[in-house]
Design a binder for these strands. Sequence first.
DNA 1: TCTTGAAGCTATAGCTACTAGAGACATTAT
DNA 2: ATAATGTCTCTAGTAGCTATAGCTTCAAGA
Lengths: 136, 136
Amino acid sequence: MFSIGQLSKRTGVKIPTIRYYEQMGLIDAPERSEGNQRRYTKDGLSRLSFIRHSRELGFSVEDIRGLLNLSQHPEKPCHDAHSIAAQHLKDVQTRIAKLRRLERELKRITQCDADNVADCAVIETLADHGLCETEH
Amino acid sequence: MFSIGQLSKRTGVKIPTIRYYEQMGLIDAPERSEGNQRRYTKDGLSRLSFIRHSRELGFSVEDIRGLLNLSQHPEKPCHDAHSIAAQHLKDVQTRIAKLRRLERELKRITQCDADNVADCAVIETLADHGLCETEH
DNA sequence: TCTTGAAGCTATAGCTACTAGAGACATTAT
DNA sequence: ATAATGTCTCTAGTAGCTATAGCTTCAAGA
Ligand SMILES: [Zn+2]
Ligand SMILES: [Zn+2]
Ligand SMILES: [Zn+2]
Ligand SMILES: [Zn+2]
C-alpha cells in the first residue's frame, strides 16, 4: 500500500495531478485509511505509470482513457489502439511542420541589423505579413 | 470607422477575440456609437493586424504586449525586440526537437503487427518506458 | 505518552488564449 | 414599419494541470 506521496515519487506524477486524474475518472478512487487518506495498490501504481508515460508521449487525456480501456481487455483486437496512435503521430507531424515554417520565418526576421525600432525587421515584419515568405 | 464585425473581417480575428484583447489591454477601448457599439479607426485596424500576425508567428500575448510597446517608440533601440524574437525562436526550436523525439518513438510503436491487445506494441510500450529508445 | 513536523484532506481559484451561449439592444435594408 | 442581421454584456467552458487556504492525520523522536 502506498500513500499518495509515495505514489507520486514512484511515478513522477505530482500529487495534485494524481487527485485531478482521479476526479477525471482516469484512475479509480482508491481505498482510504481510517483517517481518510488515499491508499494505493500496485495496480494503481502501474495504471498511473501507464498514464504518465502516455502523457510524456503527448497523448491527450481522452486518448489515454481509450487506451486504458483497451489495455484492460487483452483479448480484444488492437486496431483501435493503432488508430489512436496513428492519429496522434499525424498530429505530431502536423505540428512539427507548422513549427518548422515558423522557425524559418523567425530565423529570417531576427537577421535585423538596424539599431532602432523605426527600421527594425522584426517590428516591420510583424506589422506586415506581406514581408513573410510562407503562409501560416 | 469600422464596426467590430468589419474589423473582424479585415483582420481575420474573431469578434469575441477582439473583445478579449480589449479586456486584456492589448488594444485600447475604441470610441462607441450612440448605441454603445465599438467604432474602430485605421489605427485600431493596424494594431490588431500586428497582433494577429504576431500570434500567427506564435508569440505569446505577453511578448506581443512588449513588441507593441516598442513599436510605438520608433526612436528606441531595437535590441529588446530582437531578444523577444530570439527567445521565441529558441522556444520553437526546443519544441521542434521534443516533437521529433516523439515522432520517432511513435513511428516505432505503431509498427505493431500483433492483432490483439495482449501482444500489442502500442500498449506494451505505453506500459513500460524501458521499451523506448529515447528519453522524453 | 506526548509532541512536533511532515504529509494529506477538500474546496476553490488561477493559468493561456480563446470560444460559445443567453438574452437584450442597435443598426440596416426593404 | 418590420424583419434580418449585428452587437452588447456577462457567464461559463475548453485542456491539463498548479497553487493556495484552512484543516486533519500520520509517524517518529523524547
Ligand atoms: Zn531590429
Ligand atoms: Zn507572415
Ligand atoms: Zn497492436
Ligand atoms: Zn518512453
